[in-house]
Design a protein around this nucleic acid. Sequence first.
DNA 1: CTGGGGATGGGGCCC
DNA 2: TGGGCCCCATCCCCA
Length: 703
Amino acid sequence: MLDTMEAPGHSRQLLLQLNNQRTKGFLCDVIIVVQNALFRAHKNVLAASSAYLKSLVVHDNLLNLDHDMVSPAVFRLVLDFIYTGRLTDSIEAAAAAAVAPGAEPSLGAVLAAASYLQIPDLVALCKKRLKRHGKYCHLRGGGSGGGGYAPCGRPGRGLRAATPVIQACYSSPAGPPPQPAAEPPSGPEAAVNTHCAELYASAPGPAASLCAPELCGLDLSKKSPPDSSVPERPLSERELPQRPDSAPGTASAVYKEPPLALPLLPPLPFQKLEEAVPTPDPFRGSGGSPGPEPPVRPDGPSLLYRWMKHEPVLGNYGDDLVRDRRSPDERLEERGGDPAASPGGPPLGLVAPPRYPGTGADGDDYKSSSEETGSSEDPSPPSGHLDGYPCPHLAYGEPESFGDNLYVCIPCGKGFPSSEQLNAHVEAHVEEEEALYGRAEAAEGAAGAAGLGPPFGGGGDKITGPPGGLGELLRPYRCASCDKSYKDPATLRQHEKTHWLTRPYPCTICGKKFTQRGTMTRHMRSHLGLKPFACDACGMRFTRQYRLTEHMRIHSGEKPYECQVCGGKFAQQRNLISHMKMHAVGGAAGAAGALAGLGGLPGVPGPDGKGKLDFPEGVFAVARLTAEQLSLKQQDKAAAAELLAQTTHFLHDPKVALESLYPLAKFTAELGLSPDKAAEVLSQGAHLAAGPDGRTIDRFSPT
DNA sequence: CTGGGGATGGGGCCC
DNA sequence: TGGGCCCCATCCCCA
């Protein structure tokens, strides 16, 4: 029988390793959101320490803690305790690093949080220390008095403190407490001694380098555009109730943590709102005179929460960042929030009832910097839309002009007091237009009637009337810049943004700009390491569902994409495409069949001597189908043309080739290809018809 | 060393 | 607003 032997320090070493991993984000499988801060951790550790967290982590990878119960600063201490079993250092370190008295998280707050999170050891420790101090009151909360958002403090309530999203890293969790930094950390050691499991917004440039985000598994500076200029700001400035755009630089001597990029709006509990120091609205534009404070929802979500909800992330640094000057109520209203929470119908300033998408709820709520700086303090929206892009709002005019009938039908100008009545009215338009043009166009026309019309011509120039051709019938909304057409105006509007010189959705972390909000939020996920989609088989996580689907084929062995040239099978279409390029180099004859395989036509025989190659017409039919599919995407039109052209290579019979000329050329034209390409196809067909000597496809190879 | 395949990440874009 | 698909780039592994 073996004696029980214990390796001394094993548990401590284990904890040390875990904490080390946490600080690097290694194997972290859960993100805890506390107000504006993100913390990465390990589910197992949390579950082993806190009954409350245990109950949460089994269901979710993303936890959202009630910031009224635990502040980011306090939770950081709690997390430190969980991973180190120590509290003293953190508390003292926090106190030492505090900028303003009272800014450090209090022991009382930690106790409250520990109780809330059900961490008995920490509760006991706090109580013990409190007893030793023999007092409670001085420990109560850092707060609004100091206005501190110290490294460990939470912003004073009622203060619109500039708050980070991804915090740069500054502490050494397992090692000695962070120095009471009188200057920014510098050098590699600063990067190493980071608290990278805690994520806030860091700015590119010096801040990013200080943060050494790669250590966190986050490379925030990667692919940052050179013009991303989110200025760094000293903490003391950020934490004070100043205008965020006020002149920086006066408080660098009390620099306490690496600069932060994104000021957030901490949720303002209603009861504290009254105590709030009147603060200039940071969203009124830089240099502008402070306007009236917009109403703040008592339960207004934090900016981070709003970001996670894909609501506008409000940056107030630099004119490059977009802003949303609407009140949270307006934003809530726009996204279909509870109308009861905002009684009185559409809020003033909304020129279109929010129930009608396409009237500005799309990207128009994101104002470009140029329009922002050029606009007045007047919150009414008509001012300053992007140049060359008439504001669809304008069609509605001023809502006041319709009295109580704020829901206005664009084509006829009638106003209605409710969306339901407007809907009924629009239905009447639909029926009228159905009688005139048929169902399909009527539906589109009705969309325009409901404010969904094309964004051009002041929002009223919707395409009604019978379209000229089939394509226009199906996709009546045509882009004025590139002639692409779409079947619904929202898509057209979305597409139009790709032509804008100013991309309306900048990443608040790296400054990269996007044409679509969804792309930007997706991009943000990569910064934050949020990967909600986990593989059940291997645990690998992805930022997108599609990636997971793709990945799952690895486990299932499914390879639905088959090369029609060599029979090779692939789990991912993109790899087949890559593979096809290899074939294309080898021979265009193969490319025709290869391209046929790209169109989602598994099993279509290629030019490998099998199947339907004995039937050129069949090949052409397949090629045409494939080209049709390819042509659905503009970028594949060239491939479709090439495919069609190469298809003629298989038309061995001159008679067949001749007979194919016209439909081939016609279809080429239908694809919207250039006349040159159509002529080329014709020429090729004619060449084939002339005799086998001329059968070459080299001329159709990509040039 | 090189090329090909497997796999992943990020962005664009349409629905 | 999110999903889905595509493209490009990249990394890693292996022959």
